[in-house]
């Protein structure tokens, strides 16, 4: 075997080996990445507008959201997940702030960070009225803090 052909065959062989290993590693990574997430839907109905009282927000534990209802402004949905490390924040009627139990972050009632390590304000989600007259929250559609849905009684 000539030196040139040995080197080119060798390079081709080594290159194929590297490519094979690379593709296999990528395949392993892809295998470990779920193709389907069997998780609760991000868009869901939360019930009839009349179910929600005026005044303090209603906490929906399974969905981890707070539903605000205001006589003048209407409905709004705030995330109850702290933007720091994912703990569930609690709204206190006494000071109208959200408090995170994990690292002491405090958010104003509009979601702005007042204190603590939280890097971002609480997320607000789109809230709409479905044809059957129910409220629907879509966690895939974040909205500005001032977003409100007015429902005629």
């Amino acid at each position: 075997m000539k030196r040139r052909s040995f080197l080119s065959w060798g390079a081709a062989g080594f290159g194929s080996l590297c490519a094979g290993v690379g593709v296999s590693l990528a395949a392993v990574l892809r295998f470990l990445t779920p193709s389907v997430f069997y998780e609760p839907p991000q868009s869901f109905k939360i019930g009839d507008p009349a179910d929600f009282p005026y005044g303090p927000p209603t906490f929906l534990a399974d969905e981890k959201i707070y539903i605000f209802r205001d006589r003048e402004k209407g409905f709004a949905a705030a995330s109850a997940v702290c933007t720091h490390l994912g703990c569930t924040v609690k709204f206190f009627q006494t000071d109208h702030h959200f408090h995170c139990p994990c690292h002491g972050s405090i958010y104003a009632s509009d979601g702005k960070v007042l204190h603590g390590p939280a890097p971002k304000p609480l997320q607000w989600f789109e809230i709409t009225l479905t044809r059957d007259g129910q409220l629907r929250v879509n966690k895939d559609r974040p909205v500005a803090a001032g977003y409100r849905l007015m429902v005629k009684a």
């Binding site: 534990a61 399974d62 981890k64 703990c87 569930t88 139990p101 994990c102």
Partner: peptide, 9 residues
Amino acid sequence: NPAKTPNPA
């Protein structure tokens, strides 16, 4: 209980 964060966590 994912809905209930112990304090402190």
